[in-house]
Simulated assay, not measured.
Amino acid sequence: MFLRKPLLLAACLLALGSPAWASPTHTFDFGQPAPAAKATRSVEVVMGDMSFTPKAIGIKAGETVRFVLVNKGQLLHEFNLGDVAMHARHQQEMLKMQQSGMLTPTGMKEMDHGAMPGMDHGMKHDDPNSVLVEPGKTAELTWTFTKGTELEFGCNVPGHYQAGMVGKLTVGP
């Protein structure tokens, strides 16, 4: 009987700390994810080890683009849409994931890292502007770009962005 209250308290604390409650709402001032059926065009992006081809992509504001991401490298890579500041923040999260053993050179392990030291939310690499692609695999990301801006597409796996795995994405009028 005397354990009921501490157990109830522990259960409540665990529930409040779970990723379902702790995940931030993802909003982006440059657009939002879209279903592939809404795409007005497709752009193939080939991921090599430490490179993207093409290195620059032009988009029109209002356009919905289906990115077809082909990893021809030997390592896990990421395709992530954002500005320089967003990439810097995401790189810190990815580094913590690597340090925890969740992120490996060729894949991602399923782990509950909401309780990882230094993580302020339960990131599961489910950001809508980002996708991980294992070696030899193909993935897709479809996005509607709502306004003109200068962005980057980058791989934020630790060290990859710094090694040059970043490209320019210009959204024009």
Rank of each mutant, 00 (worst) to 15 (best):
A139I: 01
V166R: 15
T106W: 00
T138P: 02
K147V: 07
M123L: 07
H160V: 05
V166S: 13
E134I: 01
P158W: 09
M116S: 14
Q98F: 08
T144Q: 15
K147R: 15
E110K: 10
S100C: 05
T146M: 08
A163G: 03
G159L: 02
F153G: 10
E152D: 06
P105C: 09
T104C: 02
P105F: 02
E152S: 14
G159K: 03
G159Y: 01
G114D: 06
G148N: 06
E134H: 05
F145C: 07
D120T: 13
D112I: 01
D126Q: 10
Q98D: 11
D126P: 03
P117E: 14
P128A: 15
L103C: 12
L141N: 12
H160C: 13
N156L: 03
G101E: 09
L95E: 14
A163Y: 02
T149A: 15
K137P: 02
M97G: 15
H121N: 12
H125P: 00
S100D: 13
K124P: 01
K109H: 14
E110A: 15
V166D: 00
K124W: 02
K109Y: 00
D126H: 09
V166M: 10
M102V: 04
M102E: 13
T138Y: 04
E150I: 03
H125D: 07
W143N: 09
F153D: 07
L141I: 12
E150T: 11
M165T: 05
G159T: 03
P158V: 09
P158Q: 11
G122D: 03
T149H: 09
G114L: 06
H160M: 14
H125R: 04
N156D: 13
K109V: 09
G107S: 12
L132D: 12
T149N: 08
A115Q: 06
M111Y: 08
G154D: 09
A163V: 00
N129S: 14
K96V: 11
E134A: 15
G154M: 05
A115D: 06
H125S: 11
M123A: 15
G101P: 01
T106R: 12
L103G: 10
E150N: 13
P158R: 08
M165L: 03
N156F: 01
D120E: 13
L151N: 08
L103F: 07
P105Q: 11
G164N: 10
N129R: 15
